[in-house]
Design a protein around this nucleic acid. Structure first.
Ligand SMILES: [Zn+2]
Ligand SMILES: [Zn+2]
Ligand SMILES: [Zn+2]
Ligand SMILES: [Zn+2]
Lengths: 159, 159
DNA sequence: ACAATTCTGTTATATTATAACCTAAACTTT
DNA sequence: AAAGTTTAGGTTATAATATAACAGAATTGT
């Protein structure tokens, strides 16, 4: 389920499952997965690498969609609101969520060499938030964590 | 030492201590805390609110410094490299570090109402990194966490 | 069919960040 | 001190990311 993107895997089923979850989530929330939204989601899921908004524009253009920034930002905002994707702030980029529907912090490792991003278990993040709330009286509403470094394959290549 | 920015405190000494630490750190590293760098650091420390690069430009101009983006970005990059400030990616903004010199992840809570940011203890972040390294074979080189919500004072005002 | 809502098209612009090249200042070596 | 080397700052232009505003089309509910 929580798979390792740095290992070989049946990526076709990654995308399939992401789409299935997306359709279900839209249905549950009375939202519409319109063509441009679905296509953007598929593009985000292309290869486990966070993708920038402006990378998507020409791809959408190729397929005959309107190609102006608002189009892609609207689709991305829609997917973000529904929790289908996360935003990697340090890269100004977007990546598919592994378990949409379950409310959770954004928590990713990104390999600086190959660019692939792995969503991590967020339970320690929750502990951090709880601790901050208890120690300092804060009310935490959102949180995100981004780790950077080398994935196993890129460590080997570096040596 | 690790103080609470949401409580009343002698902020003048916050700034003083930040400058003292900065001078010492520069000395240790053979770097120069030039006028523009020092002034940018002071401005970042003005009020515990993350500040954008373009907020600094007019302030520098007022004081007769050159006022073009590269000037402020160079100063910010210098301060980042030396660990004197952190970058809050989700805000495209910069904030003073509470314990420069000690290598540590960037870990902040930001109040969405008053805008003040509190640096948090990063030990749980380190645990998260260690766990990712053990479980997935990753090599973590950098990490950052950003929490958003309401500080104690802004919670009261909301009710 | 009608009204209300949601989604998309389009143009323009705002915001954030960097490239490139040149000059000035500060340290190094002689 | 003079010359060479490195580091920092000035300047102009432009790249990259994101949003505002408004009009028109499609969808939904009645
Ligand atoms: Zn996959
Ligand atoms: Zn997720
Ligand atoms: Zn203070
Ligand atoms: Zn710090």
């Amino acid at each position: 389920m929580t798979q390792n993107v740095y290992k070989q895997h049946d990526h076709h089923s990654c995308v399939d499952e992401a789409l299935t979850r997306a359709r279900r989530l839209c249905e549950q929330n009375g939202q519409r997965l319109t063509p441009v939204r679905q296509r953007v989601l598929e593009m985000v899921w292309a290869n486990h690498k966070p993708v920038g908004a402006y990378d998507l524009l020409p791809k959408l253009a190729e397929e005959g969609f309107n190609s102006a920034p608002p189009t892609v930002y609207r689709a991305l905002d829609f997917l973000l609101d529904l929790g289908l994707i996360h935003r990697i702030s340090s890269l100004n980029a977007f990546i598919g969520c592994n378990h949409p529907g379950e409310d959770h912090p954004s928590c990713f490792f990104v390999c600086r060499e190959c660019g692939k991003a792995q969503e991590l278990d967020a339970s320690l993040m929750r502990s951090l938030a709880t601790k901050a709330e208890q120690d300092l009286g804060l009310k935490v509403e959102q949180q995100m964590t981004e780790l950077m470094g080398l994935c196993p394959a890129c460590q080997k290549e570096a040596s």
